[in-house]
């Protein structure tokens, strides 16, 4: 929710307020503050470097700070980079907080309990397993290819030659399993219309409901303030 807020609010104060007032206290309560900061900073770092380089040197502006080759560093560029950075950090810490405090599988189950169709719940839950499984499969095929002397490092040509024979078998072998798995699911009454009785129920305390309503209200307020011009627009 905070991340949506961060998309809406430009400037410095808004995103910083989100990080300091909403995300960090929640993370401290949940006991994941240190991990959250580490994960978000690591994930944001490569993109942050790109943002700084690209916007500092390429943003047209009147105040030139210094030059490197054909590139001018401008004050406006620095300002833009700063604003983009705090916004990115707000987005990434809030999504990171969600990721660290919510077990993905229970999130999907809760969505189904709240009315998500079992078919879509299946897609979300199966994806959780399919992605690591495919990485594993790719790893197995990659080591098999390396054993046959294919290169996965080195020049672009070498990498191309290494990656394409890797991608093909991974994709085709996963696809051929689709047929039997869908039959096996149909045998177990998958796709039967009507609701299912789920085995687990996820606790939803009054405090959680209250916090959710508060955050939705704040988000609404933020959107209104943005539209009326209290918060600055995106650069």
């Amino acid at each position: 929710m905070e991340s949506v807020g961060a998309f809406v609010i430009g400037g410095y104060i808004g995103p910083l307020a989100i990080i300091v007032l909403a995300v960090l206290p929640a993370a401290v309560v949940a006991g994941v503050a240190r991990r959250l900061l580490r994960v978000s900073l690591l994930l944001t770092l490569p993109i942050a470097i790109s943002v700084v380089l690209v916007s500092v040197f390429t943003r047209a502006g009147s105040t030139v700070l210094f030059q490197i080759g054909p590139f001018d560093a401008t004050l406006e560029g620095v300002d833009f980079a700063g604003q983009t950075l705090v916004r990115l950090l707000a987005i990434s810490t809030s999504i990171g907080l969600f990721g660290l405090t919510t077990e993905p599988r229970s999130f999907v189950l809760d969505l189904e309990r709240r009315g998500l169709s079992p078919r879509f719940a299946f897609v979300a839950a199966a994806t959780l397993e399919a992605v690591p499984a495919m990485v594993e499969r790719a790893g197995v095929i990659a080591s098999a290819q390396r054993a046959r002397g294919l290169d996965t490092e080195g020049s672009l040509r070498a990498r191309l030659r290494g990656v394409l024979p890797l991608a093909g078998p991974v994709v085709v072998s996963s696809l051929t399993e689709v047929e039997e798995r869908s039959l096996a699911l149909e045998v177990r009454a998958f796709g039967r219309p009507g609701r299912r009785h789920l085995l687990w129920r996820i606790a939803d305390t009054r405090a959680q409901v209250a916090v959710r309503i508060l955050m939705l209200t704040l988000l609404g307020a933020a959107i209104v303030m943005r539209l009326t011009g209290t918060f600055p627009a995106l650069p």
Partner: peptide
């Protein structure tokens, strides 16, 4: 079926 891997629901 024969292949237990494809009989897992995956969820």
């Amino acid at each position: 079926f024969q292949n237990p891997n494809t009989q897992r629901s995956g969820i």
